[in-house]
Design a protein around this nucleic acid. Structure first.
Lengths: 124, 124
DNA sequence: CAGCATCCTATGCGATACTG
DNA sequence: CAGTATCGCATAGGATGCTG
């Protein structure tokens, strides 16, 4: 594959621009993985802003907004606005977003299978 | 599976104690995934502190120390001290750590395959 | 309804200095 | 050698208020 100009060299986890580093920075933020999961559960359908917030207990309007904006900027989510008053805004995962969800599902599976062992090791 | 007392309910990504949330908090920190990868590359052998630092360009003594302490606390890494003067401290991945590396490898694969598309979407 | 702007706090993290 | 202790900065993110 050809790395993008912004990306570090393939496999170079030690480059600050390394894809893995940047991906972890994204999915490591508090609400991203949750938003992707919720949107994936509705795919290929869409969800409106308020509906997303309802399905993501605890998220503030600001952080949901920021999270969705970042996901849209990254091409993982499509934002569709109905020009009504008041406006209705709909979000759905792109194919890229759906493929990310598969990775996140693997992370979830690992966590649910092994987190008890981590706790048993004396974690707080 | 039986969730640990500390863990949230299985599949409940919305519980702050949810395994996935807590795992992402861990692997999302700056040096964790790099340390796991480096240790995995040496598995089943061990690496000393200084050798780890050498293979992780940019990491400070403090952050490597913190990262390794957290990994050891979580049961992902074993710390072995030779009681010499000066001391030699060796680190190796546990089986649990090795299984986490598989998940991280999947994350890396996705990143290296798709990060160019994310960049192409107008990300900064 | 779906946001953006502002303020504030908590925390990750780097730099530096010290120790058994 | 392999840490620990302390300081300071940058940023994630929560609370609140305003707007088209």
């Amino acid at each position: 594959m050809t790395p993008s100009p912004r990306s570090g060299a393939r496999g170079d986890l030690f480059d600050p621009l390394c894809p893995t580093r940047r991906l972890l920075d994204r999915i490591g933020t508090k609400w991203t993985s949750m938003a992707v999961k919720v949107l994936a559960s509705a795919a290929p359908g869409e969800l409106r802003f308020a509906e997303l917030q309802r399905r993501m207990p605890g998220v503030s309007q600001k952080m949901l907004s920021v999270t969705l904006r970042n996901l849209a900027r990254d091409g993982l989510v499509v934002r569709r606005v109905e020009p009504t008053v008041p406006p209705r805004v709909h979000y759905r995962l792109t194919d890229l977003g759906l493929s990310l969800e598969e990775v996140l599902a693997a992370v979830r599976d690992w966590a649910e299978e092994h987190m008890a062992e981590i706790d048993a090791s004396g974690a707080g």
